[in-house]
Amino acid sequence: MLEKFINAGRLKSPWIMHFDCGSCNGCDIEVLACLTPLYDIERFGIINVGNPKHADVLLVTGTVNHRNKHVLKNLYDQMPDPKAVIAIGACGLSGGVFREAYNVVGGVDKVIPVDVYVPGCPSRPEAIIDGVVEALERVKVKLGLAG
């Protein structure tokens, strides 16, 4: 019974934390655009929090390099379960145009498991919101609620 309520809460209150892993800020601006009155992601109970300990969903933009991969891993580790990761933009997906650079590791999934990939350069706010909704579907599957 309580579990049912908790699961309902899990689907209706995905707090996101946004980590800029070395993005050109294009995707970051689009992430922030989601918070503006035009898109107003708080409609879905989504809040942008500043701390992995409060977050359910990690939004990562930008390429992962050898310097910040530790930070990315640390942040991911500090998020309490259940959690999901969304990689945003071409760079987050694969390293983008920086893919071949000497210091670049590649996409986010080289360091932490990624649940949803949102393509685009930059990704559109609608796509990002869709990404979060898709992540919730994944969570549903993980919780055994899909069907």
């Binding site: 530790h70 930070v71 990315l72 640390n74 580790d77």
Partner: peptide, 20 residues
């Protein structure tokens, strides 16, 4: 038990909370 939030740069020195 987790280390405190240090902007993702958390580490420890002799069991004391530290950051890189």
């Amino acid at each position: 038990i987790a280390a405190p939030y240090m902007c993702g740069a958390q580490t420890t020195v002799d069991g004391k909370a530290a950051f890189t």
